[in-house]
């Protein structure tokens, strides 16, 4: 599945990094960045958690 991140919505809460450390990181200003755009079954649950806890609705998980 594909992960989409709208960085201009991000409020630097860090929640996605806590939920899915292998998929998200933060830049020098704390704004989220994507480490992986495609995630396999092993990471989908973590990304789902990130989508659920992101306070700014900046993350989407798209079925392909």
């Amino acid at each position: 599945m594909k992960v989409e991140l709208e960085a201009d919505k991000c409020v630097a809460s860090g929640q996605c990094v806590v939920a899915a450390m292998q998929v998200f990181d933060q830049d020098d200003d704390g704004i989220a960045i994507l480490l992986e755009e495609q995630v396999g079954p092993g990471l989908v649950d973590d990304v789902r958690e990130a989508v659920a806890v992101c306070p700014a609705a900046a993350i989407r998980l798209v079925e392909q």
Binding site: V11, A12, G14, Q26, D28, G30
Partner: peptide
């Protein structure tokens, strides 16, 4: 709000914390 908040987000990034 976003303009000002983003000025102080850096030290609260997970790795910095």
């Amino acid at each position: 709000h976003a303009r000002l908040r983003r000025m102080v987000t850096a030290p609260f990034a997970i790795k910095r914390v």
